[in-house]
C-alpha cells in the first residue's frame, strides 16, 4: 500500500506544570490523515492546541508523543517542503516586499540565477495582486497587503504542503473576504495541499474538502472529520444556495457551541471512547453517523 500523503498518528503534547506531578496534557491521541491536493481546515476553541499541531507539522515544535509522516517519512525538522503562513505575517521588516520573497526563493532554489529569481518573485506578487508594492517595506503596507506578501512568499517556495495558522484572523471582514476569494482561486488552480487553522466557520466551508473538529482542551482530541461535499470551484454567492451549506454550517455551530464541551466532559468521565476518533461525517448525507458519537 502506498503511504498516505500526510499521516498523523497518536500525537500528544504536554507541558510540565511547576510544583505539580502531572503535566498539562494539551491534546492526546490525535489521529488524522490528509491526501495530496486536499484542503483541510481545523476548528476548535482557543487553547485546544491547534497551533501546537500546526507547528509540529511544520517541524518547529516537537510533540510529546506520536508521529507525523509525510509520504512515509517522519517529520522532525522544518523543511522547505512545508511552507508556513503565520498569523502575524512574520515578514522581515528590514527587507522590501520583493526581497522578502526573493530571499525565500533563493533558499528554495540555491542554483537559480538572480534574474529568474526576480521574475519568479514578480509572478507570485502578481498572483496576489501586489506587483505595485514590490519595493515597499512591510511597515508601509496595510495589514491585508502584508498578509498577501506572506502568502506570496509561502507559495513562491512551491511547498508540497502549505500550513496556515489563522492567516486572516487579524484582518477586517472586508479584506478577509477578498483574501479568501483570492486564496480559493489560487488553491483551485495550483491544487496546493493545504492545512489551515481558522476560527471562521464560513471560511472553513468555503475553502475545505475536509474540516477537522477538536474538542475543548485540556486533553483535547480531533473528534470528527467533516466532509464538505460541495463542488469546486466555489464562490461566495453560489455556495450559500447549495443545500449542503447550511447543514454543514449548523452542524459546525452546534459542535462549537455545545458538543465540544460535552465531549470533553464525556471523555473525562469515560462515558465515550476516543478509539475511533476522528469519526468521518458528512452532515449533508446522514444523521446516523452523528448518533455514534452520542451513544
Amino acid at each position: 500500500m502506498q503511504p498516505k500523503f500526510l499521516h498523523i498518528k497518536k500525537l500528544s503534547k504536554s507541558f510540565p506544570i511547576k510544583g505539580q506531578k502531572d503535566p498539562l496534557v494539551v491534546f492526546e491521541n490525535v489521529n488524522f490523515s490528509m491526501d495530496k491536493g486536499e484542503f483541510v481546515c481545523i476548528i476548535g476553541h482557543s487553547g485546544c492546541g491547534k497551533s501546537t499541531i500546526l507547528n509540529a507539522l511544520a517541524g518547529l515544535d516537537v510533540p510529546t508523543s506520536g508521529t507525523i509522516e509525510m509520504k512515509g517519512l517522519m517529520i522532525t525538522d522544518p523543511s522547505l517542503d512545508r511552507g508556513v503562513i503565520f498569523q502575524n505575517h512574520s515578514l522581515l521588516p528590514w527587507l522590501s516586499a520583493q526581497k522578502n520573497i526573493t530571499m525565500a526563493i533563493a533558499c528554495r532554489y540555491p542554483k537559480m540565477d538572480r534574474k529568474n529569481i526576480e521574475e519568479k518573485a514578480r509572478y507570485f506578487m502578481e498572483m496576489v495582486g501586489l506587483h505595485d508594492a514590490m519595493d515597499k517595506k512591510p511597515s508601509e503596507l496595510s495589514g491585508g497587503m502584508k498578509q498577501r506578501v506572506g502568502i506570496a512568499r509561502a507559495f513562491a517556495i512551491e511547498p508540497k504542503l502549505l500550513l496556515m495558522d489563522e492567516p486572516f484572523g487579524a484582518l477586517d471582514a472586508l479584506t478577509r473576504g477578498k483574501l479568501q476569494d483570492q486564496l480559493i482561486e489560487i488553491c483551485d488552480r495550483t491544487q496546493q495541499s493545504t492545512f489551515m487553522i481558522t476560527h471562521d466557520i464560513d471560511e472553513a466551508i468555503m475553502l475545505s474538502d475536509k474540516i477537522l473538529l477538536m474538542s475543548n482542551g485540556p486533553q483535547a482530541r480531533v473528534v470528527e472529520a467533516i466532509s464538505v461535499n460541495i463542488p469546486k470551484p466555489r464562490n461566495r454567492a453560489e455556495i450559500v444556495k447549495h443545500p449542503a451549506y447550511y447543514k454543514i454550517r449548523n452542524y459546525l455551530v452546534d459542535f462549537l457551541v455545545n458538543r465540544s464541551e460535552e465531549i470533553k466532559a464525556q471523555l473525562i468521565n469515560n462515558t465515550i471512547s476516543d478509539k475511533d476518533f476522528p469519526l468521518v461525517i458528512d452532515p449533508f448525507k446522514s444523521s446516523s453517523s452523528k448518533k455514534k458519537v452520542q451513544q
Partner: peptide, 27 residues
C-alpha cells in the same frame, strides 16, 4: 530577535551562519 523571524529562517532551512547573517544581524 522575534521568534517569528527565527521560525522563518528555520522553515527556509537556513544554517546557523546564514541565519546569523541574514536574520539575526539585521534584526
Amino acid at each position: 530577535v522575534k521568534k517569528d523571524w527565527i521560525n522563518v529562517s528555520k522553515t527556509l532551512e537556513m544554517g546557523s551562519l546564514e541565519t546569523a547573517i541574514k536574520i539575526l544581524l539585521p534584526a
